[in-house]
Simulated assay, not measured.
Amino acid sequence: MNSLIVYFGKLGFSENDITEFLSCLKTRKFSANELILSNGQLENYLSFIDTGIVRYFVIANDKEITFDFAFRNSFYCAYDSFYNRTKTEVYIQALTDCELYSISNENLQKLYERCETAKKLGRIATEYLLDKKVKRELNLLTKTPQERYQKLLDEQPKYIQQIPLKYLASYIGVVPETLSRIRKRIS
């Protein structure tokens, strides 16, 4: 839980506020390749990844399409489902063993009512997820697959080796063979 305490400390949260928030958290552990959330379920948690890598994907025409990853020391959730209280259309999978610190939507709403800092946390998490989404869309519209792969490699060099080639290829919008050629050109 130290990683989360450090994260909040950097944001200027007081020790009392951090303690109140931490008392509402639930630790959840998932094994590599385990589904955390499936299409048709309701996302009940906003989670902070202490360890591991998470993959977001959809299934279209019987094919898995990876559209995002989340890494250590970051928030993740199926934000459309979590905030709108609707069933999700995505799958979220633990690519590696994961340990998550999660707050339920219900507990977060209770914290919002009694703690200004919780509102700040909610805003920060929402802004982080929205910023990530906008950047992803811009990358898809303006960058080549090689540029998208290079950006991911620059941002997450030690984690990229833990993600199977087929998921990386899907994420950048190419087939695995094309990604292999991109990797050869870069190295």
Rank of each mutant, 00 (worst) to 15 (best):
M1L: 13
N2S: 14
S3A: 12
S3W: 05
V6S: 13
F8I: 07
L11A: 14
F13W: 06
S14V: 07
S14C: 06
E15W: 04
N16W: 08
E20L: 13
S23P: 02
C24V: 09
L25K: 02
K29G: 05
N33F: 11
S38T: 12
S38I: 10
Y45G: 00
F48D: 06
D50H: 10
D50I: 09
R55M: 14
I59V: 15
D62P: 02
E64R: 12
F67M: 09
D68Y: 05
A70G: 05
N73G: 08
S74V: 00
S74K: 06
Y79S: 04
F82S: 01
F82N: 01
Y83T: 11
K87Q: 12
V90F: 10
I92L: 05
I92G: 00
Q93I: 01
A94M: 03
T96N: 07
D97G: 14
D97A: 13
D97M: 09
C98M: 05
E99A: 10
S102C: 15
I103D: 02
N105T: 09
N107G: 05
T117P: 00
I124S: 01
I124A: 03
A125N: 00
T126L: 07
T126D: 05
K132F: 00
V134D: 03
K135R: 11
E137F: 06
L140V: 06
T142D: 05
K143W: 14
P145C: 14
K151F: 15
L152G: 06
K158F: 14
I160F: 11
L165E: 10
Y167C: 11
A169V: 01
A169N: 03
Y171A: 03
P176C: 10
P176W: 09
E177Y: 08
T178R: 07
T178E: 09
S180D: 06
S180P: 04
R181G: 06
I182Y: 00
